[in-house]
Design a binder for these strands. Structure first.
Length: 113
DNA sequence: AAGCTGACCTCGC
DNA sequence: GGCGAGGCCAGCT
């Protein structure tokens, strides 16, 4: 691939693009985003990206881990805020407080090829 | 300045 | 099938 420069910052930028495009009432996972960015092992970095995204208007609450648990709820300031936001969007939760991934899982598509 | 941590995931034994 | 370690990027101490 040409790969002119594709700095690492591009990774962050892509994460924001994807997260910003998450439809209402849908959720995605860190791994999906990381994979869409081209690096599935960078799922961790995705979390960091959201950490900064927290400062932006990105719906970071729509991003959960692979099992559908709100791992980052603690970082929202109010743990229950995340659940409230998701419920307000129509996301359904299981008895274990896990998001119903089978129903609201949204797979991001590669914006740039 | 260097090293560790952090909202994870996947592969290996 | 369960447990362990590795890997990615950026920010903070």
């Amino acid at each position: 691939m040409p790969n002119t420069k594709k700095t690492k910052k591009d990774f962050f930028d892509k994460v924001y693009e994807i997260v910003a495009k998450i439809p209402k009432g849908k959720v995605t996972t860190y791994g999906a985003i990381a994979e869409t960015c081209g690096i599935r092992s960078a799922a961790r970095t995705v979390g960091w990206a959201l950490n900064s995204a927290k400062n932006t208007n990105l719906p970071c609450h729509r991003v959960v881990n692979r099992i559908g648990a709100l791992t980052g709820k603690n970082h929202f300031g109010n743990p229950m805020l995340m659940e409230e936001l998701l419920r307000a969007e129509g996301i359904e939760f299981t008895k274990d407080n896990f998001v119903n991934m089978s129903k609201h899982f949204w797979h991001p598509k590669r914006v740039n090829k």
